[in-house]
Each structure stands twice: as structure tokens, then as C-alpha cells.
């Protein structure tokens, strides 16, 4: 797990051809997604884990060159950074999780409307409702308290 994901031949790392071989798999998933979405909005995501494939650093760079950069760039700051960006093909995302020491833990291609890691989870939303409620209550109490102090003056 150096910064070169899943490469064990650091000394000579030629292109293995895996980057090109992945493109048909990506388009197959993309086509599936397009079909599903015609029937209405659904959440579906397919993940291709690059670390599970014997790809060299050059392979992954080559793949990213083919996929290009799209309109969205996101940074998730949770237990180390995560980079999420949409490729030049809408619906094809790249998700790269780093550890706190900046090594790559996960390097995925995600085919989805939006990768799950960017979505707010319903439990987190429920927790937020409570938390915001608390904040509002606190603010109101503060307000009352400060009003009281004022009136005492």
C-alpha cells in the first residue's frame, strides 16, 4: 500500500493493458444504470475496486487519462481525506479513500447517479434533526436568559 495502488513490481511497471480492458465493463454498468433510470428514480451503484485488480500505477494513471475529469470535485473529510470526482462520463465516478497518513486505502470506480459516500444517510439526518433542535432550544434559552439579564438591568 504505497501510493501506487496494488503494484507489487515497483521496479518495472509497464502497462498491462488492464486499463483498456476495464472500459467495456464500465460501459456495461453505465448502460444498466441508464436503463434503470428510464423507469424512474432509483438508487443503484456498481463499484469496481481497482485495488483488487493487479493494476500497476501506470495502468491506473492511464485509465484516469481515458476517463478524464468532469464537472464535480468533492472532498470528504472523515477519518482521513477522500477524493471523489465525476469523470468526463456522467454517472462514472472515481472514489479514492486515503488514510490519515495519506496512503490510498480504497481506489474505486463507482457507476451511480451519485456515489453513496456523498449522500447523507437517513440515520445521520435523524440525528441532525435532534441536534439542530437542541441548538435552536439552546439559542432560545440563551435569548431568554439574555433578555432576563437585560430586564434586571
Amino acid at each position: 500500500m504505497t501510493k501506487a495502488p496494488s503494484s507489487c513490481h515497483e521496479n518495472d511497471v509497464p502497462l498491462t493493458g488492464l486499463s483498456i480492458a476495464l472500459l467495456p465493463e464500465i460501459i456495461a454498468h453505465l448502460q444498466d444504470l441508464a436503463e434503470k433510470l428510464k423507469k424512474g428514480p432509483v438508487f443503484a451503484q456498481e463499484i469496481i475496486s481497482l485495488r483488487g485488480l493487479p493494476m500497476t500505477r501506470e495502468d491506473i494513471e492511464d485509465l484516469d487519462k481515458h476517463l478524464g475529469h468532469g464537472e464535480v470535485n468533492a472532498k470528504v473529510e472523515v477519518a482521513g481525506n477522500s477524493d471523489v470526482w465525476e469523470t468526463s462520463y456522467s454517472g462514472v465516478w472515481r472514489v479514492r479513500h486515503f488514510g490519515t497518513d495519506d496512503r490510498i486505502l480504497v481506489d474505486d470506480i463507482v457507476i451511480a447517479v451519485i456515489p453513496e459516500i456523498l449522500m447523507a444517510h437517513k440515520d445521520d439526518i435523524s440525528a441532525s434533526v435532534l441536534r439542530m433542535n437542541d441548538t435552536i432550544l439552546n439559542l432560545q434559552q440563551d435569548g431568554i436568559a439574555s433578555n432576563q439579564t437585560k430586564s434586571l438591568d
Partner: peptide, 13 residues
């Protein structure tokens, strides 16, 4: 949950 999700994808990988 994002953190748990990140952990989970790490474990899966």
C-alpha cells in the same frame, strides 16, 4: 455513517 461506509469499503478491499 460516511465513516462507517469508508471503513466498510476498506474492509471489503
Amino acid at each position: 455513517r460516511r465513516q462507517i461506509l469508508k471503513f466498510s469499503s476498506y474492509v471489503a478491499a
